[in-house]
Nucleic acid binder design. Structure first.
Length: 309
RNA sequence: GGCACCAUAGCCAAGUGGUAAGGCGCGAGUCUGCAAAACUUGUAUGCCCCAGUUCAAAUCUGGGUGGUGCCU
């Protein structure tokens, strides 16, 4: 019997967190975050991580599980989150997967087999050097010589993924072709939150201003020396831009404008990710008069879909 | 009022007689161990308006209109 799982996804700033808590309260659930950046400790303001009050007494999992200086990746997420879901279900509560990282959600829902080739920082650095020396075409040729099919699927300019493929082949592994059947790991009810694009962008801009008011710059200052250029956490929007400002590479206004822009782009990419999820049920947030009304509707749908009570 | 310069996509901008570069933005998409990452892709039947020269004009000429700078 597959575990029941309510999934709440959608682009940033659309109200996933608050809705998740309401649903958890109504359905006797616990939250499992699906956010690649909120899982780092001490990155709170910039990732819009819910504080104690916002968590409303509901247990949250997969927050603060990694140190910003340490690398973290999908495979680790997949294992830990699956563990958390099993634990919640075993205690008779409803796990609610809530977040905006499409890859993490997919890996969990469809049990992506990540293989057993762990990342090799030294090899990646070596390949990055090769890329800098010889260009993307030459790097891609390396892949073509070892695995023509994979090379054909990967654009030469997408060096990151070309390097990962080489990394897998080097260890004697098989590069996943993305065509392995999508087996559903859970009895899932997938809910997506959207908003009229223009409104979403306005909300994102406003939220960035709010983060600045709440001391994002200080948070980044404190975090700065703990991060290395290799830290995954350094990819977080809001952090890399403010570090550039702190290093006097740009003005504060420029950094803030950049953070807003990046967040808007990110939201758009999230939409394309979630749009292709099968069985996703969309809710247009700005169609609802109140958060209560929205929670009400989603609750009814989830109960029906997951056969609760 | 005089002189000079300028007018190309939502924005910035190249192009000075041969059939509209590029960047940003915006839209669409890809994704199996860095994913808030990385990458792909679409986006001006037309260059302020009118007339003219020419086989051919965003490009040359004349006249408008609008803007900018300097002078009075």
């Amino acid at each position: 019997m597959k575990e029941k799982l309510l999934v709440l996804c959608g682009p940033t700033a659309t109200g996933k967190t608050a809705l998740g808590v309401r649903l958890a309260q109504a359905l006797n659930g616990e939250i499992v975050s699906a956010d690649s950046m909120q899982l780092y400790r001490d990155m709170d303001v910039g990732t819009a991580k819910p504080d104690a009050a916002e968590r409303g007494g509901i247990a949250h999992h997969m927050l603060d599980v990694a140190d910003p200086g340490q690398p973290f990746n999908v495979a680790q997420y997949q294992r830990q989150a699956a563990g958390a879901i099993a634990d919640i279900a075993a205690r008779g509560k409803l796990p609610i997967l809530c977040g905006g990282t499409g890859l993490y959600i997919n890996a969990l829902l469809y049990g992506h087999d990540q293989g057993d080739t762990a990342p090799d920082a030294a090899f990646r650095a070596e390949m990055a050097g090769y890329l800098a020396q010889n260009g993307p075409e030459a790097l891609h040729l390396l892949l073509q010589q070892r695995d023509a099919a994979t090379a054909a699927r990967l654009h030469p300019n997408n060096a990151k993924r070309v390097i990962r493929a080489l990394e897998i082949l080097r260890g004697g592994g098989v590069v996943p072709d993305g065509e392995s059947p999508q087996k559903a790991c859970y009895q899932a009810c997938i809910v997506g939150l959207t908003m009229q694009r223009e409104l979403l962008y306005r909300r994102i801009d406003a939220r960035v201003d709010d983060m600045m008011r709440r001391g994002l710059t200080d948070e980044v200052k404190k975090l700065r020396e703990r991060l290395t250029p290799a830290s995954t956490a350094l990819q977080a929007i809001g952090y890399k831009e403010l570090i550039a400002f702190l290093q006097r590479e740009c003005s504060l206004d420029e950094a803030v404008a950049r953070i807003k822009q990046q967040s808007r782009h990110y939201a758009k990419r999230q939409m394309t990710w979630f749009r292709r999820m099968p069985d996703i049920r969309w809710y247009q947030v700005d169609d609802y008069a109140s958060a209560d009304a929205l929670a009400q509707d989603v609750c009814v749908y989830a109960k029906d879909r997951l056969e609760l009570n």
